[in-house]
């Protein structure tokens, strides 16, 4: 039986279409469009070449050896430089063009050290509003070696309560003996030789007075007009000298 001409033609057309489809699918369409393996590999590659912004813990050592060595022995040894100085890969590549910031502000250290009940017990925490509120943290604690400054302790054995409240006050670094002349005997036989106590408003003025009255005083001591401030009362009738509150 002879196949009709029309059927033959139809078969050819279908054959050509089928061939075209196959060619399109397997030859014309690039494999990257259909192969998941290839597009995953390309995506992985794109991910891998993204720029790094944190240079990493070892990157700073070569140029800042002094800081790195100091920090390595300190309480802050586990901290990353860039946790405080912000990502510094660009600085490490070109130190003169890009300078990393240094967090000197009092608001910074409390992100780790402010008291928070959820923090693990034993982690050193302070109350930022009460702990030496007038000065930046770095004026007393070296950020790369943050040992608490040496507070004079010679009187702590017996006056622990006073010692502890003073240690977290503005007067932390003012030694007991600046305000009390304590005879040596007071430590052995306390009641037989009592130390002196400040007696006049002028005493406090040696640090808090204006002008020449406080010539040799630490410059961070806030100044008041002693003649007018607090009327005729003794300073310690209003300010507890071991934990002076200076702001309302």
């Amino acid at each position: 039986m002879r196949i009709p001409e029309q059927v033959n033609r139809l078969a050819i057309v279908i054959g050509v279409l089928a061939a075209l489809t196959l060619v399109t699918r397997f030859v014309l369409i690039p494999r990257s469009l259909v192969s998941t393996d290839l597009h995953w590999a390309a995506a992985t590659q794109r991910e891998a070449i993204k720029p790094v912004k944190f240079a990493g813990s070892t990157a700073c050592q070569d140029c800042h050896e002094d800081v790195a060595l100091k920090k390595a022995k300190s309480f802050h040894r586990a901290l990353s430089c860039e946790g405080c100085h912000a990502p510094a890969a660009r600085h490490a590549d070109d130190p003169t063009a890009v300078k990393p910031p240094a967090p000197r502000d009092r608001k910074f250290c409390p992100v780790c050290h402010a008291y928070d009940p959820s923090r693990p017990t034993g982690f050193p925490q302070i109350n930022p509003t009460a702990h030496n509120p007038l000065k930046p943290c770095v004026s007393c604690h070296n950020p790369h070696d943050p040992v608490p400054p040496k507070v004079p302790r010679e009187c702590a054995a017996c006056h622990g309560q006073i010692e502890r409240s003073k240690a977290v006050s503005s007067h932390a670094l003012v030694a007991c003996t600046t305000c009390h002349k304590a005879p040596e005997q007071h430590r052995r036989s306390p009641r037989s030789a009592l130390p002196s106590k400040p007696e006049t408003r002028d005493f406090c003025a040696t640090c808090h007075g204006q002008g020449t009255a406080a010539a040799g005083a630490p410059k961070e001591a806030p100044k008041v007009d002693v003649a007018a401030h607090g009327g005729r009362n003794l300073c310690w009738e209003c300010h507890y000298p071991h934990l002076p509150e200076g702001r309302l």
Binding site: E47, A48, K53, G56, S57, A78, L79, S80
Partner: peptide, 19 residues
């Protein structure tokens, strides 16, 4: 991922102060 392939730690691990 871009840090791993260069032998660096993830940024969060890098800056964690208490490990």
């Amino acid at each position: 991922y871009h840090r791993l392939v260069k032998g660096l730690q993830p940024a969060c691990v890098e800056v964690c102060p208490t490990q």
